[in-house]
């Protein structure tokens, strides 16, 4: 899932200071799971902003809304009545949700309340780990289900760099070297041989904004229908 962290309070308070009625819009999926932007966190942030506004003698009102996902237009529609009353929307969704909300409601200023951090796993209560960089060119079959693009800071595709030290990364003695993990895993499963061939340079055309149509729906979205 997508993981995000709340922006520093000061940044949020400053960005919203000029608006009288602010809707704090939570998102009930990924950012709720990572305890950053669900209904509870939206409520807490609104309460905090209210306290700060009162302390600074700003006449502001904060309201809370939360929908299932801000990345779906049908759910965003549910926010419309609240957004109509608001001078600005402070979205706690990931970058995708914030943008879609802005696109759906072109008239209202949209403020970002979180920094989207990564695609990761939910390790335990309050702990997440990055696992995927969405590079559109997955090598996990080759690398034993351990991603060198996201877990190796240099994204080395042909083996470890010289900075790998005792299973740890040169960037941080606490960080596992991705290639140490890959090597151990492939050795265990007897698949080290798959690494012998040189992995060619990756295709970075994925830097272009992505858009994906499911093959079954190609006709629907083609120019001809």
């Amino acid at each position: 899932m997508i993981v995000a962290e709340r922006k520093p309070f000061e940044e949020i308070a400053e960005a919203s200071a000029g608006f009288r009625r602010v809707l704090v819009a939570g998102c009930g999926t990924c950012v709720a799971v990572c305890l950053t932007g669900g209904e509870k966190e939206a409520g807490i942030l609104a309460a905090q902003l209210d306290i700060a506004a009162q302390l600074n003698q700003r006449e502001q009102a904060f309201e809370v809304g939360c929908v299932e996902r801000q990345c779906d237009r049908e759910f965003l529609d549910e926010l419309a009545p609240q957004i109509e009353q608001a001078d600005a929307v402070l979205s706690l969704a990931c970058g995708a949700g914030i943008q879609f909300l802005a696109e759906k409601f072109p008239e209202v200023p949209v403020l970002a309340g979180v920094n989207t951090t990564f695609i990761g796993i939910n390790d335990d209560v309050g702990v997440w780990q990055e696992k995927c960089r969405s590079c559109r060119d997955c090598v996990l079959t080759l690398t034993g289900g351990i991603c060198p693009m996201s877990l190796c800071p240099k994204g080395m595709l042909n083996g470890p760099c010289g900075g790998s030290d005792d299973g740890k990364c040169e960037t941080d003695p606490e960080r596992d070297c991705a290639w140490a993990l890959i090597s151990a895993r492939l050795e265990r499963t007897g698949r080290l041989g798959g690494l012998e061939a040189i992995v060619p340079a990756r295709d970075c055309r994925n830097a272009l904004p992505g858009k994906q149509v499911h093959p079954a729906y190609e006709r629907r979205y083609s120019a001809h229908e």
Binding site: P153, M156, N158, G162
Partner: peptide
């Protein structure tokens, strides 16, 4: 051809680390 020490270890830790090619691919190039 070297990979290069990672950016965070240097004097511009916020710099974009490129690593478009790794050392093997750079040798090929």
């Amino acid at each position: 051809v070297v990979s290069g020490d990672f950016t965070t270890l240097g004097d511009q830790p916020g710099a974009q680390p490129v690593f478009d090619l790794d050392s093997v691919q750079t040798l090929q190039l």
